[in-house]
Structures are given as C-alpha cells and as structure tokens.
Simulated scan of single mutants.
Amino acid sequence: MLESFYAAFWQRAAKTDVSQITSQLRALTQARLSDPRQGDLPKWLGAYQQLPDTQDVRVMLDDGVILRSDMSAEQSELLQQALRQMIPWRKGPFDFFNVLVDAEWRSDQKWQRLKPHLPELTDKTILDIGCGNGYYMLRMAAHDPRLICGIEPGVLQNIQFWSAEKYAETGAAVFPLKFEALPAGPPCFDVVFSMGVLYHRKSPLEHLEHIQKLLRKNGTLLLETLVVEGDETTCLIPQGRYAQMRNVWFLPSVPMLSLWLQRLGFKNVECVDVSYTTVEEQRSTDWMLFHSLPEFLDQKTGKTMEGHPPPMRAIIKACK
C-alpha cells in the first residue's frame, strides 16, 4: 500500500529534473518505513484504510483545504473516526466533507501572509521542507505546479497528508525523511519553502547552503522562521527551552538573517513580513489536546515562560 502512495509522484517526477534523485528518495523512504521503531505505523495505516471511498469529489484549495462530495451520514461517521485516530493534528484546518479538522495551527493565517509574495508556481517544481501534514503543499497545488515534493520526518504527519491526498489527488508526495538525508544537489527545484525549520537547526547556515544546492539558477527560497528584534549583530541562543520547545538553537534578527543569506550568495534578499504569533493562531483544540501557545506564554509579561521575547516570525524571500 505504501508504494501506491507514490505512484502518481514517480510518474510526474520522471518528466522533471527531480528524476535525478528519485532513486535516493525511494531507497531512503523504504529504509525509514521499515524501521521497527515506527511502532504506531500499523495503527495509522489502519486508520487510513478505514477512510471511506466516495465519488465525484470536489476539491477546493484556493480558500482553504476543502473537500466536498455526496457522502452519507454513515460514511461521514467512519471518516471522523478514522481521522481522530490520527490525532494530534498540528497544521490545518482541513474540511473533509464537512468534518472540520481544527488543527493546533491556523495555518491559513500564515498562508494569507505568504500568498501576496509567492513567486510563480505554475508549472514549477517545488520542495517544502518540514512540511508537516502537507497543508501548505495542498494550498500550493491550487497554482498548478508541475511537481510538489514534501519532506517531513514525522510518520504520523505523512499519513495525515496521504489521508487528504486520497481525495484531493494533487499528485504531490511527502517523504518521511529528515532534510539532511537528501543529497545536496543536483539543482532540481524552482522553488523551495523552509518554514518553521531553521531555528531547529544547530547549523542554520548549513541548512541554507543545502537548500541553495538544490535550487535551480534563479530559483526562489521562501524562508519563514522565528526572529528577534535587533541589528546585524543580534541573535538569541536560548540557554534552555524557548516557549517550552527544547530544540531551538538560533533566533537571529532580520538583518542578521539577511546577512547570512547574502554571505551564502543569495540575491534579492527581502523580508516581506514580520508578525507576532497570537494565541488565536496557535492553540489547543479537540484535534490537538496538548498544551499550546497560551500555556507557553507568561500572561503578565507577554514573554515566553522562560522570559524570552514572544514568538515573532519573519518571511524572507531570496533568489539563487
């Protein structure tokens, strides 16, 4: 069944430069999914198999991830039961035939900030690093790209994506890998998205350089990451946690981040948005039952519980 998830992607990739790395993608994915430590994979695949089939699906991706068909009440109940076995849902929302998956993140809000600054996506090859359950990939699909490839090590998030893709049939694919596992080249992507990834990297410049090697000439990077206020010399390195996250390493200022990109040879580096993350955008829901941003902030000071500046995110656009 797993191989069937990728059939449409392999066919599309064969007609692009991404064909140069498909053998590596296939081998790495097979090794990852055969890892015996993926103990919940049978459960999640079982939930996927419970998703009901339906005819004449209407797919609407311009204003959200919205799926419609003439699904019966019994099918709708089976659908909801299957999707709830895949909790927690971190990115969303997804509207599965009027079953609303209200995820932790209102990812549609970030997409609205990003959308005015998108490069041309039509007929382009796209890589989304740390794509989670593919919410943004599905939004990208509305622009009719040639190919969309997502990288996400969380196997649960992979199955969540395939649950939406079962009905959306965009031809995109998510691979259960760490970005570092990908070969650093050849340059085969027109657009690379790296959103919510950079601050988890011990070596952020290596991450950016890896992206650069996968980008085609004149390709576009869209980078979204946590930042702090300051000048070219400002960077926060939390001593412990940041907003209760353990694996946060570097939170540069926008000028420092821009300097990193310029030093690596990126051109036309531009900060197109800076926004504070609000508790309306990230919060606990019935589909993500753990603590979220409201519990990670000190309500008296507005800072994180560790005393750091509250989460502020920048979107940087740059060209190779």
Rank of each mutant, 00 (worst) to 15 (best):
K320N: 14
A103T: 06
E295K: 13
R139Y: 02
Q75S: 06
M245A: 05
A142R: 07
P252M: 07
S76V: 00
D95E: 08
G265F: 08
R26S: 14
L223K: 11
M312V: 11
M137A: 06
S284M: 04
V269K: 09
G132T: 03
D102F: 01
L28Y: 11
S4C: 08
S69C: 09
Y6L: 09
T301V: 00
R216I: 13
Q262V: 04
G185T: 00
C188D: 06
Q109T: 12
R26G: 03
S76E: 05
W105T: 00
P186M: 05
H200C: 05
L226D: 08
G302I: 00
T122I: 08
K213I: 05
L251C: 07
K124L: 00
R283Q: 11
Q262P: 03
F290G: 13
P145C: 05
L114D: 05
Q282R: 11
G92R: 09
F266M: 03
F97I: 01
R139P: 08
R84T: 12
P204L: 02
L259D: 14
L221F: 03
L182P: 01
R113G: 02
M86E: 10
K166G: 07
Q212D: 06
A318L: 09
P294H: 02
L121I: 00
E152P: 10
L100C: 07
K15Y: 04
C319W: 13
